[in-house]
Design a protein around this nucleic acid. Structure first.
Lengths: 221, 221
DNA sequence: CACTGGATTTTTGTATCCACAAATACACTG
DNA sequence: CAGTGTATTTGTGGATACAAAAATCCAGTG
């Protein structure tokens, strides 16, 4: 996993966090599900406290909602919030490509082609796989920006919408437009014009949002 | 305070979070300071547990760093990280003004003029005050975007750099350029051109970053 | 003087108990 | 019989005491 969090868990809290994060990303826990500290603690073999600490981190990341005295539930995004996340992604990833441009060369572009090809192939294996590859593609570009905090922010936004991307991908006809869109992004990188690449990335991401909106939102909070 | 977190603390954990956040914002805790759970717990009259939970939230927001088995320290930003934060602010707040444009009218612009005037006056009272007013000015525009998550993200970035803005303001000659810069932002809103306003906000924020960089960074992690 | 191996300190995690808010069930009244 | 107020139950949040593991310190040794 190319996410910045994905390190070997040094503490129980980290283990709980990673466990819950991946469970939500992969759809094992669904929006609205209650997360009972003792249950989860037992599941991974620890006590409540580190699990509760993990809840706090997940809450800031927007993956769960903690309502005082009423426990912790998996967050669901409304249609508006999904849109909003894409809007933020569009400007942040636009910034990322702009900053990444100086590090673009034959080698990095070849790697992007490879990642795109892998994304295409993974489409057959279902949404979970495709979403991971898709994240890797975007993540690779962001990493070239050399901005640690920016990378983290963007990765966090990806995690938030992954469950919806996954369901969408499994539900609708495998979107053929995705391949062309991402090819266009790579093409813009070849041009060497940072501002142009930023514009392409922006519209690529904004174009995706309405596609998700076309079918019913999986859950409203 | 116009930050989304500023609600009446319903739980001990929230109280600890708000306490620590404001202490860091106001410079009571400085970068590199160790945060000992038992000490802080005693200070606000509670046990370790909720304090440690608050640490996790603060860590995600980037205000503290938790190094496994070595405790929690107040995060310091390197010069590069300060720059990076301004870069993110520039695109996110650029997005915010663009989205806020439809809600701009004589009334909201009058309010912005008032906030700007107050910011100017507060300059005499020192950096802590000016920074708060500055945040209010930017926050007001962001709020008009009507995007809850975007507002939160931007507010979080503001909190991160507030200590540095404050020190900078107290240290250098009160920057006269600030008034003109913010006036220019208001002017761009009068024009009604969303894309133009976005561009003005972007360059306003990016222009500020090098000013801070001119004097030595307060601490390197 | 560098290095190794233990003792000490600090941090992290566990177990258990208690208080309190919220949800629920229930009875009482109009 | 509907609506309202009250008691019971449930579960979350927090405190405290205790135990384990990691890091740090320090002295003795080669």
């Amino acid at each position: 996993m190319a996410l910045p969090y994905a390190q070997t868990p040094a503490t129980a809290e980290q283990e709980a966090f990673l466990h819950l994060q991946s469970a939500i990303r992969l759809g094992r826990y669904r929006a609205g599900d209650r997360l009972i500290p003792e249950e989860i603690a037992a599941e991974i073999g620890m006590s409540r406290m580190p699990v509760r600490e993990a809840f706090q981190r997940l809450a800031v990341e927007g993956l769960v909602v903690i309502r005082p005295n009423r426990g912790c539930i998996v967050a669901g995004l409304t249609l508006e919030e999904i849109y909003e996340t894409f809007e933020m992604r569009s400007v942040l990833e636009g910034l990322a490509v702009r900053l990444a441009m100086p590090r673009m060369n034959a080698e990095t572009i070849a790697e992007l082609e490879r990642l795109l090809a892998r994304m295409e192939r993974s489409g057959a294996a279902g949404g979970a796989d495709w979403v991971t590859r898709h994240q890797e593609f975007h993540g690779y570009i962001c990493n070239l920006s050399g901005r640690p905090k920016l990378i983290r922010h963007i990765a966090s936004l990806h995690v938030t919408i992954e469950p919806y991307l996954r369901i969408w991908f499994d539900y609708v006809e495998k979107p053929l437009s995705a391949a062309e869109e991402h090819s266009a992004v790579i093409d813009s990188l070849r041009g060497g014009d940072a501002a142009a690449a930023e514009a392409v990335m922006r519209s690529h991401i904004l174009d995706t949002a309405p596609l998700l909106a076309e079918f019913a939102s999986p859950s409203r909070r």
